[in-house]
Design a protein around this nucleic acid. Structure first.
Lengths: 347, 347
DNA sequence: CTGAAAGCGCTTACAG
DNA sequence: CTGAAAGCGCTTACAG
């Protein structure tokens, strides 16, 4: 039943050495036409395929990338995961996946496990690591790149959208539309994305001479976002904010449901709402949510590029901090400034 | 920089044999308290952790499960992926992921790649395999289980919801509500889920003395579902179906947008719509889609259980065909039969 | 309980 | 271009 075919068996059938077999299955190696033929013939006959694990052991390259991911209920991540995995596969790497969702807190343990697999690199999607473990990775020569999160650790590459500038754009849009009671529903404070979006938003509001009118925290969780929305809007109508920036679409959609179906308010007549990410659901017509787009394709491309650069040129590759600008996608959930039409904003 | 610590180094520092070190890191092995102490001390000092790949080579067990997944844009899958991955992690397995989305058609090549990693088992989520490759897996002693798809190949375990019965429930509900022009928008015909849902739906319709009033194919793709909805409903109002079963929620939500926002029809006053899966978005109040729930938790538990059973008892484990009954979740997108209230239906 | 030895399936210098 | 030999880092019988 378990009939593992080894390179030695192929070699014997082909009448060549084990080395010859190995060379046939090693892209750049030099083998004569004749040998190659004999080996291939024997290999197909026996159904031989090289054992990747054995190869990894001796070569020191596993061609496995560890990918840690959380928040799969936020549609931005499955999409990113799919793209990430596809690009890596195209480059001949495979992805060992680790869910951080349930294990939140002890990412470090997860990282140790990943390292045990002799991965060639690690991608942390919306997950932060301790500097201890970062050091361990560096010692082990395993490059790490942070996806959609940035962190001030020496030598760690990160790829995000330009969250600060995104936050600014939202504030500018609200102000241009004439809003004067502008609120914010924050994500999880531990996330750099949350902090940067809020900082940019507040800064641009300040530049316009306005203060934040109301502030609640939704932690990037739909249930908490609903609670935040109720605290913010379930008050005397004249005290309600007239515009709210929600730190990501995932929460913003839940907030819209509360505003419209629980409180009976109209969007954008009674309140404007803007999210962040441009997940597919934001474009669904029942929501039609104005939002800042995160360019997942670009972010993924940068992530893979940076990681492979570090893997293939460990000596020279330098850490990068990439922040990709994303456009404001103008839909109907937020009142339009004079002269605007629902379409992508060019800032 | 790359300071790999080996068991031999630990052994030397601890003053014991390499075997002793190995035993300390092998759960059931017999080691004296003294030895264990010395080894652990040396190991922490050196920062030693066993190389999983080396262990896999000699033991023949990689503790890696290959997971092939497609349709990540259908929210049912990210959710299943997360649960699957979590359960497997808890059992000490890790997941090597392969996206089938882009490589549709050549699942067999993907399977060969997976086998190269000496995986202990494979889960195919909403992906079908050729019987050739099934045979190869069997020869290699690698168990395979199909998740959310069933297939008539000897010895292959599959876990699905009871799609036939689900389809029946939808038809019975429509009929009970007094509908007489009942339509169906199909998924991809290659999927057993699609075929079984349609079969059950048609059968129950027949039992009630009705025929399918209209039929279109959406292939499980949102864009195709929109086109199907237009072909079906963008006709003279009196010729429109008064109820439609859409083969999954993913398509049903897109169909609702077309019906309401493009054609200006009301749901359920002008047309009732029911989906399948009960993805989280189906519960969002802007849609509030009546649907058949797939019990992801149970499906995942059965999948993991069956796979581990085959891995751990290769000699005795028998193939299983599991079909889990799922309830109709009654919301507001479909007209209620007399006496019904919006809540879970017990059938 | 413990150690010496063999071996998992490959690749990589080293000669030729 | 090709083969014999050593070795990647572990575990597993086998003695003791």
């Amino acid at each position: 039943m378990a009939e593992k075919v080894t390179s030695l068996q192929v070699a014997q059938l082909a009448g060549v050495s084990q080395s010859a077999v190995s060379r046939v299955f090693t892209p750049g190696a030099s083998v004569s036409k004749k040998t190659e033929e004999k080996v291939r013939k024997a290999a197909t006959e026996l159904g031989y395929r090289p054992n990747v694990l054995a190869r990894a052991m001796v070569s020191g390259k596993s061609r496995i990338i560890g990918l840690v991911v959380a928040y799969l209920d936020n549609y931005f991540y499955p999409e990113a995961l799919e793209k990430l995995s596809n690009e890596l596969q195209e480059q001949g790497y495979h992805v060992l996946i680790f869910m951080a969702s349930r294990t939140a807190g002890n990412i470090d343990d997860v990282m140790e496990e990943i390292l045990d697999y002799q991965v060639d690199g690690v991608i942390l999607a919306s997950v932060a690591m301790s500097s201890d473990i970062a050091t361990r990775c560096q010692q082990a020569g395993v490059p790490v790149v942070l996806f959609n999160r940035s962190q001030d650790i020496d030598g760690i590459t990160s790829v995000t959208s330009d969250n600060y500038s995104g936050g600014r754009k939202v504030a500018e849009f609200f102000v241009a539309a004439g809003h004067s009671r502008i609120a914010y529903i924050a994500g999880w404070q531990g996330a750099s994305t949350q902090r940067d979006r809020e900082a940019g938003f507040r800064a641009a509001l300040g530049d316009a001479g306005q203060d934040l009118y109301a502030y609640e925290i939704g932690e990037f969780l739909t249930e908490n976002a609903r609670l935040a929305a109720r605290r913010m809007f379930d008050v005397e109508p004249q005290k309600r904010p007239d515009a709210v920036f929600v730190a990501n679409d995932h929460m913003a959609l839940a907030v819209m449901d509360v505003i419209r179906f629980e409180l009976g308010m109209r969007i954008p007549e009674d309140v404007s709402i803007i999210g962040y990410d441009d997940v597919p659901q934001a474009g669904w017509l029942a929501y039609n949510l104005t939002t800042i787009r995160q360019r997942a394709n670009l972010m993924v491309a940068e992530t893979v590029d940076a990681l492979l650069d570090h893997i293939e040129n460990p000596a020279v590759a330098a850490a990068r901090k990439v922040a990709i600008d994303g456009p404001l996608i103008v839909r109907t959930s937020a009142r339009l400034p004079k002269g605007w039409t629902p379409q992508r904003m060019s800032t």
